[in-house]
Amino acid sequence: MPDFEPLIIAFACNWCSYAASDVAGTSRSYYPANVRIIRVMCSGMVDPTYILRALEGGADGVLIAGCRPGDCHYISGNTKAEKMVERMKTLLRRLGLEDERLRLQWISSGEGRLFARTIEEMVGRLKEMGPSPLKKRRGCQA
């Protein structure tokens, strides 16, 4: 699959990672256009079903980006997200999906460069892995 362009759905916390994606934009850090960003008020509000629905709907990878430990504006939303992501990785493996399709990354609001690098890394890895096995039937292309 030479021309495969993975689609990534990113759930980005309003207070940090979403701002970081803005910083990436304004400071003209390059990052691939494979990502669709969904702003959430805290990484802790990302529900398992959002991840599964994204994958079911044709995403090749899902990124959950939140404030660094100790920085969550709702105190422990990010620790909650961390536990949830661990459990979802288990679920994905059990269901027959590669758990690397799901990534959690702490990105604080100034770290535009880190945001860009995270997306670059994910795109690179997903290209190696190929399209999500859930995608084949419902060919929703990026």
Partner: peptide, 16 residues
């Protein structure tokens, strides 16, 4: 419900 829908898909290499 979503999980049930995913279990319907063929060709996944279940691992448990």
């Amino acid at each position: 419900d979503t999980v049930a829908r995913i279990t319907l898909r063929d060709g996944l290499h279940r691992d448990w």
